[in-house]
Amino acid sequence: MMQSTPFTFRRIFLWICRIVLAAVFLYAGSAKLLGWGLHLHPSIASTKLSLFYFALQVDSYQLLPPWAVQFVAHTLPLAEVAIGLLLLIGWLLPVWTTLVTLLIAGFFASVVRAYLLHLDINCGCFAKPEPLTGLTVLRDGILLLIAVLMTVFAFQESRRPHPWSASTPGQPT
């Protein structure tokens, strides 16, 4: 017998946030890894090329030294895919939602800085040429807001387990 309904506003909102952010992260990471925005044929060589091209976009923010640019460019897309999957799976949700929030906060800070400095660069968000405009700042701001709310709700949910996940007395977990 269920102890409470699974369809509370908080749970539904948490699910929507997870799906939206997971989709964004999976798309962003895959696009960079596979060079979708550059119309490259899928291969290891094109993935390598795509990551080096992404490094140019990271470098254009003028935030990191060259070695750090290469490190970020070669690890971030994989991290984005992994985080997207973990958000969908929901395992250790408070941990991953916190990480997602920190990551998006970092993106947002970089984008705002570039916008305020009038750097007029490509966003590099989805691996294809996309100018960094006020709309990019707005989009990242909305994503950050969603991530913060998701994290708060994830922590609240972790204190009260989902009825479908909660073990009933006498049943093994």
Binding site: F52, Y53, L56, S60, Q62, I121, P131
Partner: peptide
Amino acid sequence: FPVVGFVSYEVLKSFLDQL
């Protein structure tokens, strides 16, 4: 491959080597 804005030689070099 369009490249917008300033880019450092070291990073561009790595990409050019790939190309």
